[in-house]
Amino acid sequence: MTLVTDDRRRAGAHTGGPRRSRWRPSLSTRNNLLSYVLLAPSLAMSLVFIAFPIYMIVNLSLRDGKTMIMSEVGGLPLTLDNYDTVLSDPETWHSLRISAVYTLAAVAGAIVVGLVTALLIRRRLPGRRWLRTLILIPWPIPGSIATVGFVWMLDGTYGVVNYLLRAIGVIDENIAWFFDPQTALIGVLMPTVWSAYPLCTLMLLASLQSVPDELYEAAKVDGAGPVLQFRHVTWPAVQNTAVLAMIVTGLWTFTTFDFVYAITRGGPDGATQTLAVAIYNQAFRFFDLPHASALGVVTMALAGSALLALFPVVRRRFF
């Protein structure tokens, strides 16, 4: 998204580009006050609607007993057993693996499609505005609706995707995308990537446009082919943006649930059971909220540590 400006700022730092806030003793008190006043609504909202739910979930995860009734939760004894159960359950690790594969593959797919499309429409060419808009069209389409469309396209008997693949000779027999455990995850990834790539295109496009054409000209003069140009000009310019795009897409995929659940409900036989689906099953099919909450806390901890590990990268950009 915004990284352009930052890339540019880094590039132009020596020219005295804009700087972020500085400590100004004379104004500091007033500034601090204003700073908190401006932050207050967002902060208050986050505290109320995020901190409280997290507190509830952690609280629930420490309770002994299988309940769905919130008002009864406070009366249950405290225990760490739920974590013991969750961590020793092979299904947790199975789900974690599926989540990891799903997330990584979705991120890789989205960033590749995003990069290819961004590179194609980077340069000025007649009609670019419309081509660019067309490429970004999946973005405003709600994921739930994209999902319905893909379920129909990937149908095992009448799906048009099978027909096309047969027509061009890639496959002989229809693939039952969501039925076959080997292909179910691939099937679920298709709508996920389709919904996720436009944001990557946008972010990368924004940062690509800050690369002066002269750099490419210079590279050409030096005899660099497309591959070398990409390695030495394009990639250095977009890598920070790409990392941020990957973080955003990754976080979104890791916690998302609608695509998988709407299509396969975690099946067949657990082949697409991500952590989000496992949590849903524990809470809404087995009615074991404490177990679901413990699994949720584990999930949050994992996502949180991934985010923390990436903090230095993000800080380079923002702090």
């Binding site: 932050l39 997290i54 976080l251 916690t255 909450s293």
Partner: peptide
């Protein structure tokens, strides 16, 4: 500000129950 991102860490399936209660 960075920690505002915590919202993205909570699995939405779990977030809805406390939200509904509130």
């Amino acid at each position: 500000g960075y920690s505002l991102f915590a919202v993205r860490l909570i699995p939405t399936t779990l977030l809805v129950i406390p939200l509904f209660m509130m």
